[in-house]
Amino acid sequence: MSGFEAPTGIELDLGNLTAFDKRIYEGDEMESTTQAVQALVTAIFSLPAENTEDGKIVPLPRPSFALPREKPIPRERELTKWEKFAKEKGIQKRKRDRLVLDEATGEYVARYGRRSKNSVAQDVIIPHKEGMGDDYDPFAEKRKEKKQRIQENKKKQAANIRAGQKSRGGNINPIQALDVAKRGPSGKKFLPKRGLKDALAVVQRSTASAGKFDKKVQNEPKQVSRGVKRKFETVVPRAGLGKEKERSQKIAERVLLQNH
């Protein structure tokens, strides 16, 4: 750091190349402005400089005036299921050669991907399985199996991502909750419980008739009534004056007892 001290009333933040002049001006404004800029420039030029090919360069200290970030601090990625398992077992990643020897031909072929050792296209002859009938196509079977494996893997990837989001306590908007519905491994739809009831209640009331004439979905839960309806006593009771008399009696008793 430089030994330069700014005049009183001027604060410097060299990390931001900024001066805060808090003095109250009397007289020539331009003069005091120049003073403040002079203080800033002097402080910068007093910092230890490095001579480089491009000229003199000054490493600046960290800024003292704190400013907000533009995006939240990233959290560490949640480990995938495999990564957790590998960590537990102490399994380490190892680099494997891209090429492997194909013993059938004696040539080196790719381990995976196009024209790899295990690719379907690489197979010229596959022995027919006994008891599978004449229309059994082992090539088609192999292609199908590969597709299934890919699908399975994608499911696992999605599950890992979802697990990561869940552990972060993802924010669920009650309306968006309906869109988040995913198919579980069993093919059944499962919905995030949080916010779902609220979302449904909102949606059920969201038509012109407030849901009264809507087509109901199978097993749709009954519309939850929110709030209490006001109830009024009839002005002229149908069954005599009995009830009204009772009410008045009650009030009278309470008042009289209090006054006692």
């Binding site: 990390g15 931001n16 190349l17 402005t33 800029v37 800033l40 420039v41 910068i44 030029f45 400089a49 491009d54 000229g55 003199k56 360069i57 000054v58 490493p59 600046l60 960290r62 800024p63």
Partner: peptide, 18 residues
């Protein structure tokens, strides 16, 4: 490591916004 002005070329000190 830093998002702010880390190093300053002294020849580049040519303007001030007030």
């Amino acid at each position: 490591e830093r998002d702010d002005v880390v190093a300053l070329d002294l020849a580049g000190v040519d303007r001030v916004i007030i």
